[in-house]
Nucleic acid binder design. Structure first.
Length: 438
RNA sequence: GGCCCCAUCGUCUAACGGCUAGGACAUCACGUUUUCAAUGUGAGAACCAGGGUUCGAUUCCCUGUGGGGUCACCA
């Protein structure tokens, strides 16, 4: 291929990085990489009142965190390119392709004031473009009227700035959300007016909320930042996002970003919008946590792990959580047996099939005796000491009271693991306590 | 409402005229477990409707219906 493919990701820094936008960035990235091309990052900040520096930083960080890399060293901002736009604007006016119009401002702080805005002289034609995903799309531009392209010669509006930037940056492929379809004819009109070549368009299906409307803030967690804070792994989020609206045509579901690049085929992108399903994302994340080595698990979840955590709890945590953010709740719940025993009702020590507490007391006595005779308190050792007893008397009859006496909770890991973690002394102490309670 | 886009299990999707319509998440059942989780096995679950085209349509065409997007001196 002699013409290198150049895609772009041009967010406006007016908020956090929305997962829909993150997916758009991802597709631009893997499409470019698949074809040996580049992806350019730039900021569209022509709206001075809504654009914020802090959002620029967040967007950059979010993308980096996801592992989506852009190829330009310097990130251009439209707010710093007004000189460039001004030249095009002047030329368009000189050539009669746009004109200055004195009009009263209808909204905002300066309502009523007169302003010299610049309108594009609409040729009122039908525009047809070929979409990579949807095929030919024809739209009559007449309805667009003479649309406004700049507030004044110094302040271009979105459509003008985008077209000029894409042209000057040599963008060959514009991959964006489906909501961009209606912008396309307007932009093609401007391209023709300034003599820019027409890039190839691909409009991605939208990510929808459960109610089938465009996913937005009022639907819960929608920013990359929120998922990061939940303790979601970036590779899981990327994997899930890629499969929302795209599939490889095989049954493979787990993809690293490099594998995505290898397998990517833009013609396999779906046309209809896809509902964002948190449950499935969660499943992906759990898969990725499972694949982590223990060392990796520790380093990657470190922001979520308390300082004084017993390392023996780590394997239990790793196999239980779907997001790192669940760790604290786990430690406060099922794994809280490492804390001092809570007060509990002695009835709880009774296995559901036991008529009363008479036998339970003797079982506890037996367990106590058995365990006091062994010195190795590894879970295997404790288990081999107790198991014959459980087989003989009944697993529930023995193991339930033992586990409850050790954990003081309805839910917990098995009594052998707890014994190992607690150690012999504390294990015997808790069993003794239960025994005396009866 | 105008214009545009879309339509397979609850959800994400496979199928590129001929199959018992496949997989994954979720759900349910059973097995394993003392509990919870995890895990194993299995089950239920879909071609929006009506016309064409064709020997034959989920698949191609048309219409209807439904859903979505977009209609700023926002991007």
């Amino acid at each position: 291929m002699n013409n290198k493919i150049i895609t772009r990701f041009p967010p406006s820094p007016t908020g956090f990085l929305h997962i829909g936008r993150a997916r758009t960035a991802l597709f631009n990235y893997i499409f470019a990489k698949k074809n040996g091309g580049k992806m350019i990052f730039r900021f569209e900040d022509t709206d001075k009142t809504r654009s914020k520096k802090e959002f620029e930083i967040i967007m950059l960080d979010s993308l980096k965190w996801l592992g989506i890399n852009w190829d330009n060293e310097i990130i251009e901002k439209q707010s710093e390119r007004t000189g460039v736009y001004k030249n095009y604007l002047r030329k368009l006016v000189e050539e009669g392709k746009a004109y200055i119009s004195k009009e009263k401002i209808e909204e905002g702080e300066k309502v009523g004031q007169e302003n010299e805005i610049i309108r594009f002289k609409n040729p009122n034609i039908k525009i047809t473009f070929t979409d990579l995903i949807r095929g030919d799309i024809t739209i009559d531009t007449t309805d667009l009227k003479d649309f406004i392209i700049a507030r004044n010669i110094e302040e271009p509006l979105y459509h003008l700035a985008v077209v000029i930037d894409d042209f000057e940056m040599g963008i060959t492929h514009i991959i964006r959300g489906e909501d961009g379809i209606s912008n396309t004819p307007r932009q093609i009109l401007i391209q023709r007016a300034i003599g820019a070549p027409q890039p190839i368009y691909g409009h991605l299906p939208l990510i929808l909320a459960a109610d089938r409307t465009k996913l937005s803030g009022r639907h819960g967690a929608v920013s990359v930042t929120e998922y990061k804070e939940k303790g979601c792994l970036p590779e899981a989020l990327v994997n899930y996002l890629a499969l929302l609206g795209w599939n490889p045509g095989t049954d493979q579901e787990i993809f690293s970003i490099d594998e995505l690049i290898k397998s990517f085929d833009i013609s396999k992108i779906q046309k209809g919008g896809a509902i964002f399903n948190e449950e499935k994302l969660k499943w992906f994340n759990k898969q990725y946590i499972e694949k982590l080595s223990m060392d990796d698990f520790i380093t990657r979840s470190k922001d979520f792990l308390p300082n004084n955590l017993s390392s023996k709890l780590l394997p239990l945590i790793k196999e239980k959580v779907s997001y790192f953010g669940e760790i604290q709740a786990l430690l406060d719940g099922e794994l809280s047996f490492v804390n001092p025993l809570p007060a509990y009702n002695k009835e709880s020590l009774k296995w559901k099939q036991e008529p009363d507490l008479v036998n339970t007391k003797t079982y506890l006595q037996t367990i106590l005796k058995t365990l006091s005779e062994i010195s190795d308190f590894s879970k295997e050792s404790v288990k081999s000491a107790i198991w014959p007893l459980a087989e003989q008397i009944g697993k529930g009859n023995i193991l339930w009271p033992m586990r409850f006496a050790l954990s003081g909770r309805e839910k917990s890991p098995d009594p052998f693991i707890i014994s190992e973690i607690l150690g012999k002394e504390e294990t015997l102490r808790r069993l003794k306590f239960a025994h005396e309670l009866l």
